[in-house]
Design a protein around this nucleic acid. Structure first.
Lengths: 217, 217
DNA sequence: GTCTATAGTAAGATAGAC
DNA sequence: GTCTATCTTACTATAGAC
């Protein structure tokens, strides 16, 4: 690679990194092109040598995230018959999603804002919710095929679960002094999604069929 | 009321109504002041005789919604000891929330967009999630006081449930051809939140203690 | 490719007649 | 209070030297 190309790649990388920082600091919509170039220590005009506009830069950031995610998936292998009704496996799924959103917080924020900014008629919020919960839905379909009891259509359940994770992570991760640590959030969401508000044993079930009335925690 | 005042009130109402329409059509952020005045059949300058900016207009819309909601709450009375572990009552709660978001769709959309536009550092997403699920949290606290089993801290559970409702409603209600009717959504969310993915009876429980194996739907 | 300087644009907000 | 016309601003995006 020539010196010129290396410098160009460096500038491009600096712009991407500066953008990440600014997106967390100001949000995607409030970040101006000049905010990015200033944070990267470059001139305004240099931005356009690498990206047509802010949107194209965001797509570049997204590509990075996706290629990373692809590597991870390949590394882990991910069979369809994961049993989401098993607490450990559900916990792992939710924990991984949460961690991914935290790891890629600038992109998480930027994508969220850009989708909302597109306006309601675009229908992209639903599109993305469906797309992002594709794997989840596949697992639920598998459960259904096995005649496991499910509270509803996997095509609706998966986006619903994704909505909870997505908005809650956005809200919590963008708070300076989070009221709840990650472990608590993941544990709570796991138990909520696994057994609901009523807990593992229904409180209305006759006591004789359950344990000898354990004292509540 | 004088004629002049009546005309003014009429213009104000026309602006509010036009804004509602435009917010659904274009979204809050993409709606220009001129879009509102044009849709209301008024001149651009007239806007500023009634509102300082778009944000103040949104606050006016919010006040309308809040006063309506207040009336409804007063009408229904709403005791703290509603039992959210009872399916009918949980179903009613979720159904009412869903219906409210649909009824006030323009404001739902606008508030959502304006919060996101404020950027991540404002922390307002979490603030609003907590504020909007205030009543829900109160019900959960009550359950906890009665030593009912809960999957986690009501201070986290309530916002989590609110996040699911909020983002899912935004995504679904802004789709032209919704893939799922309201009744299905409310039913599914109710069952998911009540008993989780595992359904009312744990699939790992010995069959002898449950019903004689009903065929899956 | 990167810089400085500037052109272009879109929208918010105001002035002043009626 | 409402209108038309205009001012202002803030940002995007480009031009042209190096």
């Amino acid at each position: 690679m020539s010196v010129r190309k290396a410098q160009a790649a460096e500038t491009r990388a600096a712009l991407l990194e500066a953008a990440r920082q600014q997106f967390v600091e100001r949000g995607y919509l409030n970040t101006k092109i000049t905010d990015i170039t200033a944070a990267a220590g470059r001139a305004t005009g240099s931005f356009y040598a690498h990206f047509a506009d802010k949107d194209e830069l965001l797509r570049a950031l997204l590509d990075d995230v996706r290629s990373q995610a692809r590597d991870q998936v390949v590394a882990e292998v991910h069979p369809r018959d994961h049993d989401l009704a098993d607490r450990d496996q559900l916990h792992a799924h939710i924990g991984a999603s949460w961690q991914a959103m935290r790891d890629h917080l600038p992109v998480t924020i930027a994508v969220f804002e850009s989708i909302v900014a597109e306006g309601p008629r675009s229908g992209r919020a639903w599109q993305r919710l469906v797309a992002d919960t594709d794997v989840l839905r596949d697992h639920l379909d598998y459960l259904r095929e096995q005649h496991r009891p499910l509270p509803g259509d996997p095509a609706l359940l998966a986006p619903a679960m994704g909505a909870m994770l997505s908005l809650l992570s956005y809200a919590l991760l963008t708070t300076d002094h989070p009221a709840h640590p990650d472990t608590e959030v993941v544990d709570t969401l796991t138990d909520l999604l696994l057994h609901g508000l009523t807990g593992p044993t229904s409180p209305t079930a006759p006591a004789s069929l359950t344990e000898p009335a354990a004292p509540a925690a």
